[in-house]
Design a protein around this nucleic acid. Sequence first.
DNA 1: TCTGGCTGCCC
DNA 2: ATTCTGC
DNA 3: GCAGAATGGGCAGCCAGA
Length: 469
Amino acid sequence: DISQLEGAGKNVQDKKINFISSLWNKCKPTEVKFVTKLLLGTLRLGVAENTVMDALAIAFTGDKENRKKLQYAYNVSSDLGKVAETVATKGLEGIEKFEIALFNPIRPMLADRVKSEAEAIEKMGNEFAAEYKLDGERVQLHIEGDKVVLFSRSLEKIEIYYPDIIEKIPKNIQADNIILEAEAVAINENTGDFLPFQELMHRRRKYKIEKAITKYPITVNFFDVLYCNGKNCMELSYKERREKMEKHVKEDEFAKYIPMKLVKNECEIEDFMENSINAGSEGLMLKMLDKPYQAGSRGNHWLKLKREYSNDLGDSLDLVVIGGYFGKGRRTGNYGTLLLATYDEDENTFPSICKVGTGFTDESLDQLYQILNPKVSIKKNPRIISEMEADVWFEPELVIEVVASEITLSPIHKAAFNTIRKNTGLALRFPKFTGKIRVDKAVEDASTNEEVITLYKGQKKIAHDKNLM
DNA sequence: TCTGGCTGCCC
DNA sequence: ATTCTGC
DNA sequence: GCAGAATGGGCAGCCAGA
């Protein structure tokens, strides 16, 4: 029945409504809730992939230790359903036959976060590789002759967004077949400088992609090879893989190697970090030289180090709490998200700049609820400038501290509205509550529009279009 | 034909 | 994406 | 330390309804 709902068509909505209502009719009352959550993809059972693999291992092989073999099969095939089917019908023997295959996506290796150069040294040891962490889209390229298949980080097929990669990259490859990893980054065509992530996102389009190619040019920045000339390369060390990648990919204006340097101490990391930030990158990726490619796992062999964490005085912002949203799940009964604003000195108003929903402990969440509840107002205070629909509005009285990785142009937030670009404001990317409730601060002492504008203009990568003011 | 709300996927 | 928490 | 579950901005596309 469900398969009939696939694909486009007129009145799909009606068909879906009919389908769902008949499904509900077959349910016992207690089942309706769970069927609904299943349909919405919001079922939370405390169970995810790894737990499923444990369960499969126990159910079909009788030994939880076999989870490692299942894990490998999954990492290499990216298809947990197929892994489950195979272990159920063919047992471990079937599982052991899973291997890397060209044009089948591999689950990407992930990195842990680290907050300082010192912590990085501690975890990485003597000597390791540092690469620029470019702010683009991670792309897994499978290539054989002129045939190119691209996968996103979550293993979506993304060829249609990058016809230029499909056309140009085969010429850079010196191998019969190969699986590579790279970061696609938007660039300024004239200067070659990196542009913000927001610019790259214009490429994720179904229509008018040919125009977008010239309007939003990119470079492809290679950093790894997983498979080459029919052979699995994942067991090779980082060093060997990097050499292999450089051997089989030829650089030019479009295809680059991600800048990399071997480093030994804090000083060298800091220097390279400085270069990387000046080049407009987010920070560094740190990689152990002798470790294999661990598909699908976030381990200690790769670390990411972002600038934001490096200086503890950081560029934190003191923002005014203007609105709240009721929390879900374990946050039920508290505000799960707060709407924040800067202070506009000229207008004496509080224009929204972001929501923040992370960085809270259970305790701080309780505490904030206690503080904010008395400030709830029936009507939105006229000094609040926001088009968002908060669950509750607060009298603008409380200031909290927030850090963020970047300031972006915003179609929805109102801070510095119409000062950088027409009809757009500024917002924070990856905002986090620092834990500091600034009860000592008056709202008029919060971070101002002017300060945020200064921070925005101080960023290495900023937009370059004609609508700027 | 246009638009607001919503979804899915990037980070 | 970041972050916190239970195990 | 892992796994899970809270939560962010913002882009294009889709669809229902104006």
